[in-house]
Amino acid sequence: MTNRPLPVPDETSAPYWAACAEHVLKLPRCSSCGEFTLPPDVTCPHCQSPEPDFTFEPVSGRGKVRTWTVIRHSFLSGFEVPFLLVDVELDDQPHIRMVGRLVDGPETPLRIGDRVAVAFEDLSSDIAVPAFTLAGAS
């Protein structure tokens, strides 16, 4: 399907990648304070709980473009250039930022604050990676 590098799910990330494969964005949520965190850590970065027992819960995946860049040379193999990366602040919780490719293409005109929604790129039969697409004024 692709020669792009694949993530290797582990015990802290397996539910995230399993949900992505179903094209659902689920983020780790601390069971002590209820805050989302990306990526999960051994403690909760918000409440410092040493037993965050993260649960993976669906989020809206909607947000606004904080900034972007067009990658014209990739340091990684397997990517066709150019492609566009967006830095997205999710609506679901302040300060949660995700970086993903904009599937609308590298020439897409963008402005700071543009609305986007999560989309998924299937890299193999069981791995999909979150990306974004322009969502209009929703």
């Binding site: 990739s74 990684l76 492609f83 993903g100 890299l123």
Partner: peptide, 20 residues
């Protein structure tokens, strides 16, 4: 330049999107 075809650990959260 990095020829890796898979990323475990911290970089699983960034490299698969081409953010590297």
């Amino acid at each position: 330049d990095n020829p890796m075809t898979e990323f475990a650990g911290d970089q699983q959260w960034s490299a698969p999107q081409g953010f590297f």
